[in-house]
Design a binder for these strands. Structure first.
Lengths: 339, 339
DNA sequence: AGCCTTATAGTGACCGGTCACTATTCAAGT
DNA sequence: ACTTGAATAGTGACCGGTCACTATAAGGCT
């Protein structure tokens, strides 16, 4: 079903005014507040609006008010890890503040992205921008008189991230518990180290190895995919397998589990595996995957709360919950025998 | 890092003109085409633009041209099934046509959604809208002079869908093959029957049962979740289990597999399971899940191709590949013994 | 009744671009 | 030298709303 727009112009405020027998300014008042108008006048305008099926042109309105009622959220690449939960939280907060939220994704490198972001900020189309990707340092001096810009980066390349997702403390908690359960040899399959979160988890892993005095079979530099989980295990010499694998996320952990199954290892009897993200499929795997649940909605919400604050000065309630929590499931257990 | 927008107005075309010592109209020409200007004039304007860090106000431009260079894609609910692949295809096509794409998600029922969609269409903010959700029939007469609207629905509630995702032919293909492999008793765990795709798959299942003269243990009305897969199996009397389960999608199939593992059934020896969507995790399960791969990028692209055609009259190349293809993996096999 | 205050409605400019039209410059043609 | 026309630049109106200000009507008070 396709509707071709025939360029018949929409009715304007002046046509409504003529039909209702009032001035255009009266209609303008009607649109904004409906206050200070006689009930009789109001009714006449009501009728005219209905008859013409009038809807205000938001673009024209903006020209005076600078208010578009719209915020944008910028993502680096749409195909990257699923952003729906972050978006859902951000959308909710934006709606609470009376804004609609628009999703924009800019491809290209950081410089191209920054340029387009500045264009968007100064084009007058949105009042504020929440970007999940970092912006080029060169842009720092140039922003300020367009839309407000808030950077909430898990994707930061400069380590200046304030992102809430990169807290890797659960790595330590998981390893502490696994060490308690008798595990002495660990392995880490990292995510793409271009991501601050991957680096943070890797650092936390290395620190925990030190702190708990356990062995490490190494750190594999993966790319968040299940395939990299398989590859990581294949890269190990068969005689020195770990008994616990800390995977960068659930997909990676799934790859590790796949490899284990193919090589006759049973999880968690022979190998404990942990993931990250509490992906939907994790708890239905056999064994159900121990993971770290992230309050992604909260992350989206909190970013948006900051943006709303920057744009309107208004304080919205941030997400109450903790950003992450450890979900201990079946894929991790006491080490019963040494392999 | 938060930038507060201090309402210092952006420089306008007239300020650039003053600085360059030309008229505002000359600057306007410069912005649109840069043609018909003396090189010297062009240089002067260039310099002025750079000095003021001028960027055009797209909103003001629109008021005359009606061209915003923006299209919107409307989704019913952001948290529903992952739309990133569809978006990715749609974005690509929009970019090819020189448009930027904005994602809007409207909550609420079909009527509320339709109302907001019409508002968006007539607000002048976008030139066209591709909606993945159906619109209320009541709106049919009211659209036509705002932005172009194209409906591409897998989510159609009225069975008037032209969606390309609802072709359920692969159900028949899977069942034909399974019947060939000796399966005589099937079971279908449907997705949410509010979805046309779920209904289509269910119908195809029932038709195939007829056509191939096999038994059906019934149709379970699920909701696309893994949990519904578990529930569906628990709902069966233990003495009359099927040997093949056609699940509504991969998550449902995962739930079925989970149930099987918990009840000592081995897949595919005791039970064959098929999914749908070729979700990323499917091929890394043990056993890897037989599924139906969907060209979701293509679906997004094709919807956008139609929208671009409606807006500009221009023909973009549609996605070449078939919408779906059967991916036969480890979770389906010849029936070796009767349970 | 007359005056002042408040409620309601109207007038014209303006936001920042583009459009239609006009004015100027300058080289070529006769 | 004068006309002609293309190339280049300028003028003022306009898009559809809102703002600041003014005008009128209605109500309260002495």
């Amino acid at each position: 079903m396709t509707e071709r727009s025939e360029q018949a112009r929409r009715p304007t405020i002046r046509e409504v005014a003529r039909l209702a027998g009032v001035s255009h300014q009266t209609v303008s008042r009607y649109l904004r507040s409906r206050e200070g108008l006689k009930p009789a006048t109001l009714d006449r305008i009501d009728a005219a609006v209905r008859e013409l099926d009038y809807r205000p042109n938001l673009v024209a309105r903006y020209l005076n008010t600078r208010r578009t009622g719209r915020l944008a959220i910028v993502m680096p690449e749409l195909v990257a890890s699923n952003p729906t939960r972050i978006l859902s939280g951000a959308t909710e907060a934006a709606h609470e503040a009376g804004y609609s939220l628009e999703l924009v994704s800019f491809g290209g490198g950081i410089d191209a992205r920054t340029e387009r972001l500045l264009e968007l900020a100064d084009s007058g189309q949105v009042e504020g921008i929440l970007t999940l990707a970092p912006i080029a340092p060169s842009a720092q001096g140039r922003l300020g008189n367009g839309a407000a810009i808030v950077v909430s980066a898990d994707f930061d390349d400069e380590m200046r991230s304030v992102g809430e997702l990169i807290d890797a403390a659960p790595v330590r908690d998981m390893m502490a518990r696994l060490a308690d359960l008798g595990h002495r040899r660990f392995y880490h399959v990292a995510g793409d180290l271009k991501y601050a979160s991957a680096r943070a988890r890797k650092d936390a892993y290395l620190e925990a190895v030190d702190r708990f005095g356990v062995e490490s079979a190494g750190v594999f530099e993966g790319d968040w995919t299940a395939q990299s989980g398989c590859d990581a295990m294949l890269a190990l010499p068969p005689q020195s397998l770990p008994t616990a694998v800390i995977a960068g996320n659930d997909m990676v952990a799934l790859g590790v589990m796949r490899w284990a199954g193919e090589h006759g290892l049973e999880i968690p009897r022979d190998l404990s595996v942990t993931g990250w993200d509490d992906t939907e499929f994790g708890q239905f795997l056999r064994p159900a995957l121990t993971s770290v649940g992230l309050d992604l909605e909260g992350v989206g919400r909190n970013g948006m709360v900051r943006l709303v604050k920057a744009v309107t000065g208004r304080d919205l309630a941030p997400s109450p919950g903790p950003v992450s929590r450890l979900l201990w499931r079946e894929s991790t257990a006491r080490l019963e025998r040494t392999p």
